[in-house]
């Protein structure tokens, strides 16, 4: 039973890192394709394109952070071994879900917004400030999900 508890926590950590990372990979890929299209015509826009392409990458970092917290919580990253019941393991698993789910979808959505904004700066480079704000709005919901995952992880008493 103790192993099952730890495994549930590990599954949660794996989903947080895996799904949020996948969302980021897809998002960064979409923005990258758009960026390549723009830079073929105007290589001078590399700096702006890189900034916008990097934005959807944060969800992957949030997922990784949550995964670290989760495995730290159940004592898999050094320290003393902690006894984890199935219910506690399930709690850690559920605590990881907000960033796993929101990270995946917000990563893709942010990638699409970044791609659209990369197209915006191709036509109107003077609007770069606004072009960064629009995909940053999507980031809000990934940050909220990260916050909730951390609060939930902290609320589980082991």
């Amino acid at each position: 039973m103790e192993i099952l508890g730890v495994m549930l926590a590990v599954l949660g950590a794996a989903l947080a890192a895996g799904l949020a990372g996948s969302g980021s990979a897809i998002g960064v890929g979409i923005a990258g394709e758009a960026g390549a299209g723009i830079m073929t015509e105007d290589p001078g826009k590399f700096g702006l394109v890189l900034l916008l392409q990097a934005l959807p990458g944060t969800q992957g970092i949030y997922g990784l952070l949550t995964a670290f917290f989760a495995i730290l919580k159940v004592g898999l990253l050094g320290g003393e071994a902690i006894e984890v019941s199935v219910w506690q393991g399930l709690g850690v698993f559920f605590a990881c879900l907000p960033i796993a789910i929101a990270g995946y979808y917000s990563g893709i959505a942010q990638g699409k917004t970044s791609a659209a904004c990369i197209q915006l700066i191709a036509k109107r480079p003077e609007e770069t400030g606004k072009a960064v704000i629009l995909p940053a709005m999507v980031e809000t919901y990934a940050v909220l999900a990260l916050l909730m995952s951390i609060i939930l992880l902290n609320s589980i008493k082991l």
Partner: peptide
């Protein structure tokens, strides 16, 4: 995505 972005730049 690539083609449309390139064309937006070509616009």
């Amino acid at each position: 995505t690539y083609a449309v972005s390139r064309l937006k730049a070509m616009a």
